[in-house]
Amino acid sequence: MARAATPARKTVNTIAAWVVALIIFFPIFWTVMTSFKPEPVAVAFPPVWFDFPWSFENYQTVIQLRGYGQFFWNSVVIAFGSTILGMIIAIPAAWAMAFVHGPRTKDLLMWMLSTKMMPAAGVLVPIYLIGKALGLMDTRFLLTIVLMLMNLPIIVWMLYTYFREIPGEILEAARMDGASLANEIIYVLTPMAVPGIASTLLLNVIMAWNESFWTLNLTAFQAAPLTKFIAGFSSPQGLFYAKLSAASVMAFLPILILGWFSQKQLVRGLTFGAVK
């Protein structure tokens, strides 16, 4: 507002907003705290807040006993693999749709989006049967392909909304100067499109990392990513809160940090450009 808020009102706003924010964040904070506790302290009732012997022991236990490394590596391969593969296929398509407006561009975009509406559970049976028939169950390959196809419409859409904002005159100028189509893409368009490409990459890696339908249903152990690793904690096993917390922190921390960087792009990406 043009009229400056009074300091008193600003103070009240600040306190209220921080209280709400901290309540929303609290489960994450508590998970991080619990991951540093010895198991008996983690299940203590009433809960212990700060006064306990802090240690990284749970992290060591989880890494050593449960083969955390393999799950982590599977997550990295599947999340980045599916996203990068999707980008390679989507960048030319989004470029063409943004700069060569055909009569059916809009219909095509809407049709792509419609494939995203297909509920995963609806096609669980066919994907499962195809995976089995081809001997691809529990392979990173199958999961990478499935997640790539699942996110492809979003990747095309996000890139399209970014590319559309690049002025077409620049491309025309390059063409006048005799740039070939390939040169046009590599030297003119790509540098201008890097921010859009980067945020598309980021958001889709996050979504693929957290995907929990296909990753849980198409893997057993070999290709199992972190979602499956964490789901393994669903049946109680003695004292396990602290280990569960340590495993959880290791599963979400990298992606949470990436998420913080991507939050500005998140709105536009996830609403297909409808809210900016």
Binding site: V20, I28, N210, L216, T227, S248, A251, I255, G259
Partner: peptide, 13 residues
């Protein structure tokens, strides 16, 4: 940042 954080936590966690 605090408010958006839960969105990035994987569902099983």
């Amino acid at each position: 940042i605090l408010v958006i954080s839960p969105f990035f936590i994987m569902p099983p966690v």
